[in-house]
Simulated assay, not measured.
Amino acid sequence: MFGGGGGLDPRKMKQMMEQMGIDITELDAEEVIIRTPDEELVFTGADVQRMDAQGQATYQIVGEPESRPRGAGGSDAPAVESGGADAEADAGSDGDIPEADVEIVAQRTGSTKEQAREALEAEGGDLAAAVSRLE
């Protein structure tokens, strides 16, 4: 269809996309979370592209996700990530810090799980603040 060889020349592909009004932007995403009713798919360090075509934005994520179940803490996850006052009150006790969050903080900072849990508790479950505290 497009000729022989094994694909299009990248320059030609870019020209064709520009002619069709398609714009692709590479995003510098640190983490992407997809929540379903049963689980969370967490992509850390994934390649993310945004394609704008005909007034629609489409996102492409390339990477291998970590799957974690949405249990009792699943409904609290957006509030905890937002770092609001309710999140701090909800995440005050040991049982409210999900083990997956502890692992993420420990992995990102190179700290022990105990240090990561302490930082999360001190920051009310806020992942970004806990990472900042340990770095």
Rank of each mutant, 00 (worst) to 15 (best):
residue 34 I to R: 05
residue 41 L to A: 09
residue 13 M to Y: 13
residue 39 E to G: 03
residue 130 A to Q: 01
residue 102 V to I: 06
residue 63 G to Y: 07
residue 51 M to F: 15
residue 83 G to T: 00
residue 32 V to Y: 03
residue 26 E to Y: 12
residue 75 S to G: 08
residue 57 A to C: 15
residue 89 A to Q: 04
residue 93 S to A: 14
residue 105 V to T: 01
residue 99 E to S: 10
residue 124 G to D: 02
residue 86 D to H: 02
residue 25 T to S: 13
residue 75 S to C: 07
residue 120 L to A: 01
residue 101 D to H: 08
residue 104 I to M: 08
residue 108 R to W: 04
residue 80 V to I: 10
residue 134 L to S: 00
residue 111 S to R: 01
residue 131 V to I: 15
residue 126 D to S: 09
residue 73 G to F: 05
residue 19 Q to Y: 05
residue 71 G to S: 14
residue 94 D to S: 10
residue 27 L to S: 03
residue 37 P to H: 11
residue 109 T to R: 01
residue 69 P to R: 05
residue 113 K to D: 04
residue 110 G to F: 07
residue 22 I to N: 03
residue 106 A to G: 02
residue 39 E to W: 15
residue 86 D to P: 00
residue 89 A to G: 05
residue 90 D to M: 08
residue 2 F to E: 00
residue 108 R to V: 06
residue 1 M to R: 11
residue 26 E to Q: 14
residue 9 D to K: 07
residue 66 E to R: 12
residue 88 E to G: 06
residue 40 E to G: 04
residue 57 A to M: 14
residue 33 I to E: 12
residue 83 G to E: 02
residue 76 D to R: 04
residue 103 E to L: 09
residue 15 Q to K: 11
residue 34 I to Y: 06
residue 85 A to C: 07
residue 88 E to P: 00
residue 127 L to V: 14
residue 62 V to S: 14
residue 80 V to N: 00
residue 54 Q to S: 15
residue 109 T to W: 01
residue 84 G to K: 02
residue 25 T to H: 13
residue 96 D to Y: 08
residue 77 A to W: 07
residue 59 Y to P: 01
residue 13 M to P: 06
residue 111 S to C: 03
residue 55 G to Y: 12
residue 114 E to I: 00
residue 131 V to H: 01
residue 4 G to V: 13
residue 113 K to I: 02
residue 95 G to R: 12
residue 41 L to T: 07
residue 94 D to H: 11
residue 20 M to Y: 10
residue 81 E to Q: 12
residue 29 A to Y: 05
residue 4 G to Q: 13
residue 72 A to H: 03
residue 100 A to F: 14
residue 48 V to D: 02
residue 84 G to P: 01
residue 58 T to K: 15
residue 100 A to Y: 13
residue 114 E to P: 01
residue 100 A to H: 12
residue 121 E to N: 05
residue 75 S to I: 13
residue 127 L to C: 03
residue 44 T to Y: 15
residue 19 Q to M: 09
residue 66 E to N: 10
residue 65 P to N: 06
residue 31 E to S: 07
residue 70 R to N: 04
residue 133 R to L: 05
residue 14 K to G: 08
residue 21 G to M: 06
residue 2 F to M: 04
residue 89 A to M: 09
residue 65 P to V: 01
residue 96 D to A: 14
residue 13 M to E: 14
residue 127 L to M: 13
residue 59 Y to S: 05
residue 134 L to N: 00
residue 124 G to W: 01
residue 77 A to K: 10
residue 102 V to E: 02
residue 9 D to R: 08
residue 25 T to P: 01
residue 97 I to R: 00
residue 4 G to D: 08
residue 75 S to Y: 05
residue 132 S to D: 03
residue 128 A to I: 10
